[in-house]
């Protein structure tokens, strides 16, 4: 199946739903790792929207990206509760260990605020991280 066929299929799967754009974008992001301009065009056609409208939505939300990044990503929480438990002191070491191979992405809150510092890799959660545990996550990512 070509990329465009897959896109058309995703759009068709959400036809008839109220406000289908976000569910479509989530599916496209997870299938292709990004929502690129070509995908925006197909989605805009399917929903009878302008490309500008679709692009406006894609660029608004942090979860949608214009380019795919194949590197493994560690989402590290750096919100207040994790700051209070010392996440800032771990960031530099984690970024150094990650280098160009792993992406350390900042998120604000994973809902594990009583057991921070916390991180997420996909749907795998990690809490009570110290320097050693975080570095191990980076190395095994």
């Amino acid at each position: 199946m070509t990329g465009e066929e897959r896109l058309t299929e995703i759009c068709a799967a959400h036809r008839g739903r109220e406000g289908p754009l976000l569910p479509i974008l989530h599916d496209v992001q997870s299938a292709f790792g990004c929502v690129d301009p070509a995908a925006e065009r197909v989605i805009a056609n399917a929903l009878n929207l302008s490309r500008a409208e679709v692009h406006g939505v894609v660029s608004f939300y942090h979860d949608f990206t214009a380019e795919a990044d194949p590197r493994p990503a560690i989402e590290l929480c750096r919100a207040e509760a994790c700051q209070a438990r010392g996440v800032e002191a771990l960031v530099e070491a984690a970024e150094h260990a990650a280098g160009e191979r792993v992406r350390i992405k900042t998120v604000y809150c994973l809902g594990l605020c009583s057991a921070g510092p916390a991180a997420r890799i996909g749907s795998q959660l990690h809490a009570r991280l110290d320097r050693a545990a975080l570095l191990e996550l980076v190395q095994s990512a």
Partner: peptide, 26 residues
């Protein structure tokens, strides 16, 4: 169930409604 997309401001009720409608979460 509808899933948000990483925008904190969508916790504001009118912004959330826009997001549900498939718009920018303004």
């Amino acid at each position: 169930v509808r899933v948000g997309a990483g925008a904190y401001v969508c916790g504001e009720e009118t912004s959330l409604l826009n997001s549900l409608e498939g718009k920018r979460g303004e």
